[in-house]
Simulated scan of single mutants.
Amino acid sequence: MMRVLTAVAVAVAMVVGMSPAVESARAQGFPTRPVTMVVPLGPGGSTDVIARVVAEGMRAALGQPVIVENTTGAGGTVGVGRVARAAPDGYTIGIGHSGTNVVNGAIYPLSYDLMADFEPIGLISTQPFLIVARKSMAADTLADLVAWIKANAGKVSEGTSGVGTPSHISGVLLQNTLGVTWTMVPYRGAGQSMQDLIAGNLDIQLDTPATSLPHIRSGLIKVYAVTAKERLAVAPDIPTTDEAGLPGFYYTFWHGLWAPKGTPKEVVAKLSGALRTALADPATKQKLVELSQVIFPADQQTPEALRAYQKAEIDKWWPIVKAAGIKVE
């Protein structure tokens, strides 16, 4: 009789779901297996590189591996959608940025809500872009490059990580600043577009230091300026846009971590704590600094801070993107 009652109890539990007490107990034991971090863009770009640095830092804090998986397509919407549909147990999380988790909502017909369908884990870092060009570009200064672009209006090509990604949005802002339009060529990630720039199949690119600096140092591409008010600590020889002749042209973008909606608060708290521990680790911090990342202060690495920051970014960028007429082609 006892075995029958036990079987019935198990069956009922499977039908009605775990009780809050049981779910809480399971959450407190989290994680008992590896966690998957979804990167919504291709390998080789800054999002991928940052993800791998952060994943390694979180591994020690969680006591389990954090496995990075690239799920690409449609400017990051495929990968973000994978996270939205994942089981809300903390074992699938996603890294995203101001393109995938802000701007895409103004461009793509998403099957998920960027604010309502995710549990924020925390902000990671922010970074500027570098204005770069193919090695064979005749222009040696930013002023020369601007003159070349204006003289070749309609013939210029720029690689991006996809429609609505930061590289695309910054390119649109540059077009608006110069009063010239050119061809934007979308890729699945910065790594792929960079390879075509190196091959000479593209003319220019706005890309992250993490992606660009190794190729700049190898002499494979040209660099003209950093889109920030201050020079990069890891590349102090690169002038700012103010110094190079394009005053006031600034662009930076940020990264954060999210879990699926409904992930238990205790699990989100553990993931957020692991992120903060990783970002405070000297080795992890150094790796991010070498990638020209500016790590958010500890009090901005919380789920609450990410939610507020993301909402403010949506309020800021959606009107700009819609006014610019940026659409999926």
Rank of each mutant, 00 (worst) to 15 (best):
M184A: 09
G191K: 04
P186H: 02
A138L: 12
K155H: 13
A151N: 13
K150V: 12
G162T: 05
L173R: 14
M184R: 09
T183E: 14
M137D: 10
K135Q: 14
G159P: 10
S170N: 11
S167Q: 04
T181D: 10
K155W: 03
A138T: 12
S170M: 06
A153M: 03
R188T: 12
Y187F: 15
V163P: 03
V163F: 07
K135A: 14
S157P: 04
G159W: 13
V156H: 03
A139D: 00
S167I: 05
A139H: 02
G171M: 11
R188G: 13
V146W: 00
A190D: 12
P186S: 05
G171Y: 07
G162Q: 10
S136T: 14
T165W: 09
W148I: 08
L145P: 03
G164I: 01
P166S: 10
V180E: 05
A153E: 11
V156S: 02
M137Q: 11
A147Q: 03
S170E: 11
A190L: 09
T160K: 12
L173H: 13
P166Q: 05
G191P: 08
P186I: 12
S157D: 02
A138C: 02
I169G: 07
I149V: 15
S157M: 11
A151W: 04
T141P: 00
